[in-house]
């Protein structure tokens, strides 16, 4: 099967800083769930930021192909419209911008790009109801401004709800488990599992193995000091839990 995402020797840094990513290679095929694990400072968030096109980072070497196209040549908004979705580790509060208004604008921006008719208010509302039901989320979140006054768990749930609405081809979940208690973790994980799809790839970026008890990945990679130093199947995560990352640090 052709890969959805092909990362080759990716090197990147915060503008003006030293390289944080020092040569990442990663292939992701549609339908797969990859977990990228690693200690703090390994470069996990830099990888997700570079994939999403966050300003303030520069790529100093290597390439990223997404659906065979040069992903790095696209601005962040175009990547999103082409089906790349980043679930933020720290979702941003945006006072004054209503959640529904924002989401409809985002959804229709993607539909315009794909040449699909935009959803009117009624169609949009129906889609919202369907996804809320799928994810078991209460609709009062939607009446508020984007993430304003949301608890940590609500923010993460809102990210997964947006993912459900936008139906990305590639979803990158950046530390989606951080700050969640066990109940919230279960709700969010159930949501992600329902969004697993043969045409959708999911990259889970996480510090902790516990997320992988709920979302079982096809592949597990260990990121350390800017490189993927070890990879394995789902059983690898449990092994890591026992042995820790430390012995892998110099494996590359």
């Amino acid at each position: 099967m052709t890969n959805l995402l092909e990362i080759r020797d990716l090197r990147a840094r915060i503008v003006g800083g030293r390289d944080i990513l020092k040569g990442i290679d990663l292939d992701v095929a549609p339908g797969e769930v990859h977990a990228i694990m690693g200690p703090n400072g390994a470069g996990k968030s830099t990888l997700s930021s570079v994939l999403a096109g966050k300003p303030g980072y520069e790529v100093t070497g290597g390439s990223i192909l997404y659906q065979g196209r040069d992903l790095l040549a696209l601005p962040a908004d175009e990547r999103a419209r082409e089906g790349v979705f980043l679930a933020f580790q720290y979702p941003v509060e945006i006072p004054g911008v209503n959640n529904m208004y924002f989401l409809r604008a985002a959804l229709n921006a993607g539909r315009r790009q794909r040449g699909v008719p935009e959803l009117d208010a009624a169609q949009f509302l129906k889609a919202v109801r369907d996804k809320l039901k799928l994810l078991d989320i209460s609709d009062d979140l939607l009446r508020r401004a984007v993430n304003v006054g949301f608890s940590g768990g609500e923010k993460k749930r809102n990210e997964i709800f947006q993912m459900a609405m936008l139906e990305p081809k590639l979803a990158i979940l950046d530390e989606t488990d951080s700050g969640l208690d066990i109940d919230a973790l279960r709700v969010v994980s159930d949501g992600v599992n329902r969004l697993r799809d043969p045409n959708r790839a999911i990259v889970l970026i996480t510090h902790y193995q516990r997320l992988l008890d709920y979302i079982v990945p096809d592949h597990v990679h260990v990121l350390s000091d800017g490189r993927i130093v070890a990879s394995g199947d789902k059983t690898f995560a449990a092994e890591l839990e026992r042995t820790g990352y430390a012995h892998l640090g110099s494996a590359a």
């Binding site: 908004d77 979705f85 933020f88 941003v92 911008v97 985002a106 921006a109």
Partner: peptide, 14 residues
């Protein structure tokens, strides 16, 4: 800037 990026990361043009 963080808000601007959040909106763009959902497909909304700058």
């Amino acid at each position: 800037e963080a808000s601007l990026f959040y909106l763009q990361a959902r497909g909304i043009d700058p």
